[in-house]
Every structure is written in structure tokens, then in C-alpha cells.
Amino acid sequence: MQRFFTQSLKWRAFAMFLFLAGLVFSTPAADFKVGLVLDRGGKDDKSFNSSAYEGANQAKKKLGIFLKYVEATDDNAFEPLLRAFAQRDFDLIIGIGFAQKEAIKKVAAQFPQKHFAIIDAEVDAPNVRSLVFEEHEGAYLIGAIAAMTSKSGKIGFVGGMDIPLIRRFSMAYEAGAKKINPQINVLANFVGVTSEAWNNPPKGKELAVSQYDAGIDIIFAAAGASGLGVFDAAEEKKKFAIGVDANQNWTKPGLILTSMLKRVDEAVASTIEESKAGHFTGGIKRFGLANKGIDYSVDQYNEKILPESVRKRADDIKAEIIAGKIVVPDFYKKK
């Protein structure tokens, strides 16, 4: 086991070396250069990282920027990857995920002339833009939709890593459900307590199967790539699941009731566009229901399973949240 672990570390170090060497030999000198550091879920998680990657590529197609991305093998990789981009004179460096907060803070201080952005964390530095989302607003809305659709009066939640961010989802999801049905039962489970929890579909499926077997008929998955396991369980048990971050309705047509949209793609694309135009500003930029940074999805894959009456009630609740008539509980502000 120790030998395997040592070899694994060597392979990771070698992969890091190849990436850094690639920056040295393949980076153009003239283009506006954007470096994108994804977390462990990777660009194919069909969720959080995929959305960020899509937004960066939208900017690439529109603006003709040079884009380089890398998927961090573990949390220790963030700092050297961010620093490598800065050393190779990239104009904008974007870290995807709260786990990069300390690395961004440190590297941004070392390269004050470079611009950085981070998703889901606040870094107080003049050369860092913090892109944060009002996830609780969307989760509340999703909870209401789940409660309106459930036949059993039991709904579930599968979160990725057990951290305040995901507790924020869970708390608001339950509150939204109880707005519709005060007696509804809500069961929440989490995949794990380390960053590996974002990329463990088998564990996600195991938790979901257990919930479905307990009588739950709808599960909201906020678990990164682990959520794909929840969707597999929904297919196996012929029950509903709800996606998150990106529009995941297409992954299991007719079984994904809706997806809570967290427009990471637009946050990334707009930051790149503003930066290339010379309008980069540091500070915090928030995205919620009011500016459509948060929403729920309706398309050809779920329009037949999400009744018009449910959508209308959901839109009414959305309007009430935006108007301040409904105050959504926020785990971040829990006393």
C-alpha cells in the first residue's frame, strides 16, 4: 500500500511537471492569456467545473483569447498551478472553487500586477475579483418545486463535501419545501468530508439508492461529479432527481425534474470580457435570482414532467424572494 501511494505521488508530480513544462514551451507572447484552474471534479463533471470551462470557451470563441486550463489533482496543486500561470505572464488567472481561496490570496499578493478571479470565495485584494452566488435563493426555489411535485411527502438531498457552502444548499432546500408542505420529510446525506467527495459517483449512487428505498421520490444533488451517481440511481429506481450548477436535464431525460442553475459560465465569461477590455475591477460580485445568476431550468428534456402549475408557483415564489417578501434562511448567517 505504501509503495502504491508513493508511486501515485510520483505520477502526480510528473503530471505537474509536464503541465508546467507545457506552459514554458507553448504559451504565446502576444494574445490576451487566461489561465483556468479547475478543482478535482474536472471539466467533465457536467456541473460546476463544466460550467466554468464552458464560460471560458465561450469567451475564447467570442474574443479570440488564448486559454489554458488545468485540472488540479489535489488541493496541494492549486498554489503551484496558479503561480505557474502568473510567472508565465498570463493576464487573468481564474480559480474554480472555494478550496483555492488561500492559494489565490497568497499568489495574488506575490503578483500584484496580475489579475485573478475566484468562484465561491471572497478574497480581499485589489487584484482579485470574488465571484459569489446566492445559492440559498435557488435551493429554496428547488425545495418548493420538489415539495409541489412529490407524491410520497418525502424528499432527499445529497451533498458533496460536508462544508458550510453545501449546508447552505441543504438548509434552504428544506425551508423551501416546508414553505409548500410544512409536514414534508426531508433527508440529507453528504458524500464525504474531503475534496474527494466531489468526484465519487459510486458513493453518490449508494446514498441515493438508500434514500429512494426509504420512500423518497425526489433527490436534489449538489455534489459535483458525485451527483452523476445520484442520477444513475434515479434511472435505476425510476424516480426523480434534481441537478445543480449547469443545466443537467439532458443527462437523464424524463428523470431530471429540473436543475438549479448557478451561472458560473456567465460569471467566468463576463470577467474575461471585462478584463480583456481593460475594465477589470477587484472586489466582490454577487449573482442571485435578481440578476439571473441563479435560476431553475425548463427545456425540452423536462417540460413534460414539470407541470405548468408548478412552474407558475415557482415563478411567483421567485418574484417574492426578489422583492424581499420572502427572506430565505442563510446558513452563512446562522447564529
Rank of each mutant, 00 (worst) to 15 (best):
T281V: 06
F287G: 01
Y296E: 04
N49Q: 15
L165N: 03
R88M: 14
K10N: 08
I93V: 11
E135W: 01
Q248C: 06
I94Y: 11
D39P: 10
P202Y: 00
A59P: 07
A314G: 11
S130I: 03
K62R: 15
Y332E: 07
I242W: 02
E71Q: 14
N49E: 12
K239F: 04
A121Q: 05
S152C: 09
G229P: 14
K114E: 03
A208C: 01
K205N: 05
G288Q: 03
M148E: 10
H115R: 07
A208F: 00
E308Q: 03
N76E: 11
K276W: 02
K285L: 07
F98N: 06
R313F: 14
V107C: 05
R12N: 04
A146F: 01
P329Y: 05
K105Q: 11
K179Q: 14
A277V: 05
A21W: 06
D232F: 00
K114C: 13
K238R: 09
T73M: 15
W11T: 14
F78E: 06
K178V: 07
A221Q: 04
K68L: 11
G97C: 12
F17H: 04
F157A: 07
V158R: 04
A103G: 14
Q248I: 08
A72Q: 04
V158N: 05
N49D: 09
E236L: 11
L207K: 05
I218C: 03
G64K: 01
L67N: 13
G229C: 06
F4Q: 09
K106V: 08
A208L: 02
R313E: 10
I142V: 13
V34E: 02
I65P: 15
G153N: 08
F231C: 11
Q211S: 06
H115T: 11
D245I: 04
P182T: 02
D31W: 01
L207W: 01
M161R: 10
G64E: 12
F133T: 02
N76P: 14
K276I: 13
P80H: 00
W250T: 04
I166F: 03
A234S: 14
F14Q: 13
H115W: 01
F240Q: 04
L255Q: 05
L261H: 08
A214V: 04
T194V: 07
G215E: 14
G138L: 13
A323Y: 03
S8M: 06
I305A: 13
K61N: 15
A221N: 10
F190A: 10
D74V: 09
F116D: 13
K60S: 03
A197C: 09
N200C: 11
K105Y: 09
V327W: 05
K61P: 15
I322M: 02
I142W: 02
I104S: 01
E71M: 10
K43A: 10
K68G: 08
Q300F: 10
D213F: 14
E79H: 14
G42S: 10
A15I: 12
N76Y: 03
A269W: 06
W11S: 15
A172F: 03
I219C: 14
K318Q: 10
I218D: 12
G176Q: 00
T73N: 13
K68D: 10
